[in-house]
């Protein structure tokens, strides 16, 4: 029992701490994120600059704190887009059945064939870079997977007695989907959502590292790595700090998803 919940507890703690750090950044950062301390470039950690300074003498810790906002914003927006669109498509396909299901799912299969980042790059090529477009691109990326999960959940419950009963007394299909079936698939959607959140953080970091995601002056952990590249030997902290932040956030969401899975599936093997 102890082991089973440790994933969830640690995962929630990590994400909670990062969320706290991000909330604090709304009212307080040790330094202004854009203030350049020119006489203090490439410094290591000190009482004044907790994680050292970057190539312009900006405080790395303040920028990492602020980068949390970008990560949470892009992550939650992308997951919201993925969950809403994916659940609608999967739900309708699964509930309607017949040719509607066939057409929807063939299209989803086709979209699933695009490696995630390729599709995100295509969306950005069309919509242009920027924080919201990055979230949109990453959200679209997760729609096919989530729609499949939603569909299989709906198929599982569609023929059950309580759904049949609701249908018999004349409940409309939309109401059946939302009020009777959706509550039963929430747990699998929570798992899918936290995996998608972890993937969104990695994709945002990757896109911003490529210069095609979040644009300056908004600080983003991926963007910081782009700026830090080539300065590792001079100032390792500048490179290590944003990378650790990304890894921790992704790890937190992976652990949450594994924890939820463990809590629900007694038989399943856990990591």
């Amino acid at each position: 029992m102890r082991r089973r919940n440790s994933n969830l507890v640690i995962g929630l703690s990590i994400v909670g701490l990062l969320a706290l750090m991000t909330l604090v950044s709304l009212v307080y950062t040790p330094h202004d994120i854009n203030e350049m301390h020119r006489e203090h470039r490439f410094e290591g950690p000190s009482a004044r600059f907790w994680l050292g300074t970057d190539n312009f003498g900006r405080d790395v810790f303040s920028r990492v704190m602020h980068g949390g906002r970008t990560a949470f914003f892009v992550g939650s927006t992308a997951v919201a887009i993925g969950l809403v669109a994916g659940t609608m498509i999967g739900g309708i396909a699964g509930y309607a059945g017949s040719w509607i299901d066939e057409v929807f799912m063939r299209v989803m299969d086709g979209l699933l064939a695009f490696p995630g980042l390729i599709m995100a790059l295509m969306v950005i090529a069309i919509a242009g870079p920027g924080t919201f477009n990055t979230a949109l691109a990453i959200g679209i990326m997760s729609v096919p997977t989530i729609s499949r999960i939603a569909r299989s959940g709906v198929l599982q419950f569609k023929s059950m007695d309580f759904v049949q009963a609701a249908r018999t007394i004349g409940v409309r299909p939309a109401a059946i989907l939302v009020r009777h079936i959706l509550p039963n698939v929430v747990s699998s959607l929570v798992i899918a959502g936290s995996v998608a959140f972890a993937a969104a953080i990695l994709s945002e970091a990757g896109l911003s590292y490529l210069g095609l995601g979040v644009q300056p002056p908004t600080p983003s952990w991926g963007r910081m790595l782009r700026e830090a590249q080539g300065h590792f030997l001079r100032s390792p902290w500048f490179t290590l700090a944003p990378g650790f932040a990304i890894t921790l956030m992704v790890l937190g969401f992976y652990m949450i998803s594994n924890g939820v899975r463990d809590a629900l599936d007694v038989r399943g093997h856990h990591l």
Binding site: G243, T247, Y254, N258
Partner: peptide, 15 residues
């Protein structure tokens, strides 16, 4: 394993 899965490959590349 979970930490390994969470590391961004481009960060590893830079290091």
């Amino acid at each position: 394993i979970q930490v390994g899965m969470a590391i961004p490959s481009f960060w590893l590349g830079i290091i």
